[in-house]
């Protein structure tokens, strides 16, 4: 690999997130919060609660990772500059005269720019989380993956939890269980950076950061422009789930046959049978539906 390329990626990996990329992140997060029904009225009636929600949207990932590592969850408040920055962005978005910021934001190129810059901060957060977890647990690669993921995509979980506590939202819908597309990508990135950190992946860190960021930004922008959700990963995921979790569907006809013959599993536990039988029939139904 020639040296100008290396220089470029190295310089890129040393870019400071602080003023511009952080602003973009806060802007996108708070705008996403404002899109929720009732958020604007809430800000008029109860600014404190609205501010708190905005902080959760902006710093949720950090809070979640602090909770997982038994650090004070309010640690983000010690970073005065960032909190002030996020607060001022919250203020101008909700209380700007004539709603100027929202109107400017609804212009597509601005949105694309802000979203692209937000994805850049995601890479930095994942790397930060993985390194931080590694300082606690030398060989705990599961912990490293989890912390990297929590930093990168934990904000969504925190905000859902906050809505649950406020009573705005009931889990029952599938949305909670389905991992959103960004969190899947974050998980993938977290795994890659962890393996890079434990030197199982023979790529230098700045190169990986560069390529991952480019990947994130391009997929995000493609998704926004074409207005689709989950493009890239769907075929890959399909194959993977068929390989890993598809065993029973292939064998389901076998099971059906064995079911017709009684006592195929001998003197199985009779008390566990009602529940086990119920779950089995549910499963069979599902297998039939899909198979």
């Amino acid at each position: 690999m020639d040296s100008p390329w290396d220089d470029l990626t190295l310089a890129f990996s040393h870019t400071s997130m602080f003023p511009f990329f952080d602003i973009a992140h806060y802007l996108v997060s708070v705008m996403a919060m404002k899109r929720q029904p009732g958020a604007a009225e809430l800000a008029r009636q109860n600014p404190v609660s609205s501010w708190f929600t905005a902080m959760l949207h902006c710093f949720g990932g950090g809070i979640l990772s602090c909770m997982l590592l038994a650090e004070p969850p309010l640690k983000f408040l010690t970073n005065h500059t960032n909190v002030l920055l996020a607060s001022s962005i919250w203020y101008i978005i909700f209380f700007c005269p004539c709603d100027l910021v929202s109107q400017a934001y609804s212009y597509l190129p601005v949105q694309l720019l802000a979203a692209g810059m937000k994805e850049v901060t995601r890479t930095w957060k994942i790397v930060g989380g993985v390194t931080h977890a590694n300082s606690y647990y030398r060989n705990g690669w599961i912990v490293m993956i989890a912390i990297g993921w929590a930093r990168g995509a934990g904000g969504a979980i925190m905000t859902k939890f906050e809505q649950l506590v406020k009573g705005d939202w009931k889990p029952g819908s599938d949305e909670w269980l389905k991992m959103s597309y960004p969190s899947k990508l974050t998980l993938l990135g977290s795994i890659m950076f962890t393996f890079q950190h434990t030197e199982h992946l023979a790529v230098s860190k700045h190169n990986l950061m560069f390529f991952y960021t480019v990947f994130l930004v391009t997929t995000k922008i493609t998704m926004m422009v074409t207005e689709t959700s989950s493009v890239t990963l769907a075929p890959f995921e399909d194959t993977l789930s068929r390989v890993l979790f598809g065993w029973q569907k292939q064998f389901s006809w076998c099971e059906k046959k064995s079911e017709t013959k009684p006592s195929s599993n001998g003197t199985g536990s009779s008390a566990s049978k009602p529940t086990a039988g119920a779950s089995e029939s549910v499963k069979k139904k599902h297998a039939k539906k899909t198979g």
Partner: peptide, 9 residues
């Protein structure tokens, strides 16, 4: 740390 045990791969 809540995920302490997960370092036990």
């Amino acid at each position: 740390p809540v995920i302490d045990y997960f370092s036990n791969s």
